[in-house]
Design a protein around this nucleic acid. Structure first.
Lengths: 123, 123
DNA sequence: GCTGTGCGTAAGCAATCACTAACCGTTAGT
DNA sequence: ACTAACGGTTAGTGATTGCTTACGCACAGC
């Protein structure tokens, strides 16, 4: 899976896998160690390690040593990136929606602007 | 890629691919047709079709016919799901952070509660 | 020092996935 | 009716990916 690792994968890439989402969800609830996570999932402990590496490289979690254990915690930087992207998607979608609503009066007379008309008809 | 299709993939699964994120971003900007998207991306038009199918099954986009063209628009339902999940991640992460902040006074005396202490040290 | 526990990493493998070319149905214009 | 444009679908292919086992290092307790 190291072959899969690229320097800084996108948080979206990282959470595009259901196992990694489950792991991340667990860490978001409370910081925990690799072994604790592995015991709650139907996969091997090294697999969890490898997933954590990806989450870490994506900026979604960070880790620190505590004796023989490594404790993983959420890195809000990665969450912020996701939120920013999601907001952009949302803004774009709602922007088109609002533009269509403002043109609602003329919707049937101005069929030349297909983009807004399409969005209005979808809603 | 139909082999990849499952009835209702998660929006996270759908956006876990960079090509699909690019497609979705384009649609979030404004509704558009398959061919328009394909012309702006370095992949074939059938590939775009297949990606759109996944985004649609994930509830992130919807489509309608307009002559020979199919116009794709954002489905805010899928966006809402992403937002809800993201909020849950965020809430969990900040909850642990706030709990640690409230215990800041006793942080050095109560090292037995490792979870909160860990989160406080991370921040 | 020895032993046990925890965990990162590498290598290998089977399954999955993103891509292409080809095919064909639908729509629209002449 | 013919032609062009559009786009969904299928099948095949090579690349990618998530998993496992094995190895070895670090830490902690005795």
């Amino acid at each position: 899976m190291i072959a899969y690792a690229q320097p800084n994968p996108s948080p979206w890439d990282a959470l595009g896998d259901p196992t990694r989402r489950a792991i991340f969800r667990r860490i978001a609830d409370a910081p925990c160690a690799v072994g604790e996570i592995a015991r709650t999932l139907p996969i091997s402990r090294p697999a969890v390690s490898q997933h954590l590496r990806i989450l870490k490289d994506a900026g979604l979690v960070s880790d620190r040593a505590e004796g023989t254990r490594r404790i993983y915690t959420v890195d809000v930087g990665g969450l912020a990136k996701l939120r920013a992207d999601l907001d952009a998607f949302w803004t774009g979608a709602l922007g088109a929606f609002k533009a269509a609503a403002e043109r609602d009066v003329d919707a049937h007379d101005q069929d030349t602007n297909d983009k807004e008309t399409d969005e209005q008809e979808k809603s």
